[in-house]
């Protein structure tokens, strides 16, 4: 029986399509999550929207914000990052044809597409939300950053959302791979997370100094292009790092 020679590219493409077909529910889950958050916003749970009223006149201002959809999408990205490192996922890939490299690349392709879908739907949902609330309440609306009012801003928000989603997936994915390679890796990773979110913790310990938290590093970047460069570079580094654990983890270890 003669041997079959398959190129890396072929297998990455096949694995990517396989992951899409087998994880279609992951994408559906995003839509469901967004829909649920929408439901909360539109039904206007009173607590979440502070109004202002006096006996003589009423000023009602509805702050329609997409923040909750954004948060939901980012949370989803985190779950997706974890999900793709589960042994079940890897074992399924190796039930078919796979190598650690193709597995990693196919996962990144999956993250890419998932992030694009999440980015576009999340930003669009902001605009649609406003429309829905407008039609429901009939009140005037001051649109900021919509497709028509500020198309460039609109697209840049999509790009930013995609990058955020992708960044979360890739970082979480890589961290999980390191932990799977060696359980002890959890210690430096937890330290890193603390460092990036709660510089105050270190402040209390008196080592605040010049620590610029990782969080601020992205979140407080006001220049779109600089943000692009920063996330791009970080993602590239993290992605390259991920090949280290992924090529060491054994399959079907039971």
């Amino acid at each position: 029986m003669s041997l079959t020679h398959r190129t890396m590219g072929e297998i990455v493409k096949q694995q990517f399509l396989f992951k899409l077909r087998s994880n279609a529910a992951v994408i559906t889950a995003l839509f469901v999550m967004q829909a649920v958050v929408w439901g909360f916003i539109i039904s206007g749970a009173p607590n979440s929207f502070p109004g202002f009223s006096m006996s003589t006149f009423e000023l009602r201002w509805n702050s329609i914000t997409n923040d909750k959809v954004v948060m939901a999408s980012l949370l989803w990205a985190l779950v997706v990052g974890v999900l793709m490192t589960t042994p079940g996922q890897r074992n399924a890939s190796f039930t078919y044809v796979s190598s650690p490299v193709t597995e990693n690349l196919a996962n990144f392709c999956f993250f890419g597409l998932a992030a694009i879908i999440a980015g576009v739907t999340t930003v669009l949902s902001g605009s649609v939300l406003k429309l829905v609330v407008f039609m429901k309440d009939g009140s005037s609306i001051i649109e900021t950053g919509g497709l028509i009012a500020a198309p460039l801003d609109f697209f840049s928000r999509i790009v930013v959302m995609i990058l955020y989603t992708l960044l979360i997936m890739v970082v979480v994915y890589t961290c999980m791979l390191f932990v799977q390679m060696n359980r002890l890796m959890i210690v430096p990773i937890v330290l890193l997370v603390l460092l990036s979110t709660k510089s105050s913790v270190f402040g209390h310990l008196g080592i605040e100094g010049n620590i610029v938290t990782l969080f601020d590093f992205f979140y407080n970047e006001s220049s779109f292009w600089l943000f692009l460069v920063k996330t791009g570079v970080v993602m590239a580094i993290v992605s390259i790092l991920s090949f280290f654990p992924s090529s060491r983890i054994e399959v079907k270890q039971s």
Binding site: L3, T4, M8, V97, S98, S99, V101, T102, S247
Partner: peptide
């Protein structure tokens, strides 16, 4: 280990 040739065959 890590071989695509072995996996494909």
């Amino acid at each position: 280990f890590r071989s695509l040739l072995v996996s494909a065959n």
